[in-house]
Amino acid sequence: MTTLPTGTDRKLGLVIDLDTCVGCHACVISCKGWNTENYGAPLSDQDAYGDPSGTFLNRVHSYEVEPAEGAAQLIHFPKSCLHCDDAPCVTVCPTGASYKRTEDGIVLVNESDCMGCGLCAWACPYGARELDLAAGIMKKCTLCVDRIYNENLPEEDREPACVRTCPAGARHFGDFSDPESDVSRLVAERGGFDLMPEQGTKPVNKYLPPRPKDKLETEAPAALPAVATETTGFLSWLDKTLDRLPGGGAN
């Protein structure tokens, strides 16, 4: 059913710390690795040794942010499905393949129903869904639904592959419906925010802002004082001649 549940028992999702992410793309690779060989159709690549392009459920952008004062900052920005409470991708789906689970809020695609029309990818403002060109069906982050409840895995592995892999500890997984969970507390303490709140999708995943940076020395070093004031000889003549040319130095 592609009508959204009125509420979900739990709200599983991710917190992504933009302060800690180092932009290594390890989460991208572990995501592709896990999801290409487990639940559902593999994540195919096209022309891998020519002009490559492929299906990924998680991608890391990098932004340069220039404050009004002080030095510019480089911020790495991982982005995957935010498992929105008001997911527009679900309600547009004509086949009933896209749905949001009542028990934990995970947004999934039932691959045996999907006809690959792509409308859900159009409806998602975040670019979190990609149509797999080999399988012809829609792929998206499953929050590693086949890991988090998997009793065949050691307990520490029962979290999404991206979270398990992140060497910087920039990704956290948990239940947002519990105000005492680690993720809820992180969001409260660090001022976690929604992406594109004006789109009205009510994303479950939250982002933590970069912490304020130390102030860098922004003054340029003072010009070196001239050693010789009056000069003679060939080099002096050359210096003055070059100065006189258009674009020559003034000092």
Partner: peptide
Amino acid sequence: TGLGKIGAVKA
């Protein structure tokens, strides 16, 4: 990106 509070955002 939610980064507009810090400054001008450029890809």
